[in-house]
């Protein structure tokens, strides 16, 4: 059975769809009320963010658009030091989408939400003409401890940068699907609760965190350097990159520094806590390939010390990172 325009009409088909797919898999006491808005209790300062997801293909090794939709917003909250609590999920579905695919996505979102400890408390569904595609928006709220201030402005000279794991897995996974190149690269879409909350709980002096999504590490570090008015120097040899991902990059002429992830982040941490922090990362499943990749100093921009010992300026990503011959 396929999604039809009637499923978005607001009438009987819409409510049946909501009951049979979304309410069934997202159920929680707040959503079950099915009011026009969710009424929430939150403690103290909150972080609030939104993100939209338009990836194709919809399903790929390691995840799908639904998993991305949960992890993306959850991770943005975590990067602010917030404990993610509540999400909304809005769907724009193109007619022709198989209902069973929609259900697969909903199940995936439900599982990711459980992993992240969040409830999906409100949602919306629209249906438009098209070819069976789907676009998802999620917004999220998280609670921040009053004493916690996570900001790039706090980065100081001598701070170190830890990267939680291998670069470019998600981007490489999607590209492999699109280009028909066989490998075992899996998207790394995952909620980052475990390492982030471990760092906070252990009282590690974390100045700022950013997840490494579109635009890759190169772009994220430039944003960090600019916001902190400091220079970040990276060590090429220490950058963790999976062998198959590096291989794919060589084949397509891409640079892992500019490939996106969906389950990796950088943390700028005070020098004195670097060993303790790295050890903590290594005790988590997600962070087992974490590495100290660089240091903060006076100056501006991002510089990479190459394996040959040379010096290379790293800018933000320009363009789309399309495969090239030359």
């Amino acid at each position: 059975m396929l999604i039809r325009m009637a499923h978005g009409s607001g009438g009987k088909e819409t409510s049946t769809l909501i009951q049979q797919i979304f309410a069934k898999h997202f159920h929680n006491p707040i959503l079950n009320e099915m009011e026009d808005a969710a009424v929430l209790s939150v403690k103290g300062k909150i972080a609030f963010t939104t993100d939209s997801f338009v990836v194709t293909p919809l399903f790929f090794r390691g995840g799908d658009i639904g998993r991305l939709a949960i992890c993306g917003t959850v991770n943005d909250l975590l990067m602010q030091g917030a404990i993610p609590k509540y999400l909304t999920a809005a769907f724009i579905i193109e007619e022709g989408m198989p209902l069973k695919d929609l259900e697969k996505i909903a199940v995936s979102m439900s599982e990711a939400a459980k992993e992240a400890g969040v409830m999906i408390v409100a949602g919306d569904t629209k249906v438009i003409e098209g070819n069976g595609g789907i676009y998802i928006n999620t917004s999220g709220i998280g609670e921040i401890d009053d004493n916690l201030i996570m900001s790039a402005k706090n980065c100081s000279v001598g701070d170190i940068v830890i990267l939680s794991g291998t670069l470019g897995d998600h981007h490489a996974c999607i590209l492999s699907h699109r280009m028909g190149i066989e490998n075992t690269i899996s998207s790394d879409a995952t909620p980052l609760n475990e390492p982030v909350l471990a760092l906070i709980k252990a009282g590690i002096k974390v100045k700022a965190m950013r997840d490494v999504t579109r635009g890759g590490l190169g772009t994220v570090l430039n944003e960090m350097a600019e916001a902190s008015h400091k220079k970040i120097t990276l060590d090429e040899q220490s950058l963790p990159v999976g062998e198959e991902v590096r291989g794919l990059c060589d084949i397509l002429g891409l640079d892992p520094l500019y490939m996106g992830n969906e389950g990796k982040f950088i943390a700028v941490i005070e020098q004195s806590d670097k060993e303790k922090a790295l050890k903590l990362f290594h005790t988590t499943e997600i962070g087992k390939r974490a590495a100290i990749i660089g240091e903060v100093s006076e100056g501006e921009g991002v510089t990479l010390v190459t394996t040959l010992g040379g010096s290379r300026h790293i800018d933000v990503l320009y363009g789309e990172g399309l495969p090239r011959i030359c």
Binding site: D255, L304, T306, L308, G309, G310
Partner: peptide, 16 residues
Amino acid sequence: CGTHTSAIAKSGIRSL
């Protein structure tokens, strides 16, 4: 060759 220009830039050879 443009691929050499790219390789030189990527490894920071000019700075060496």
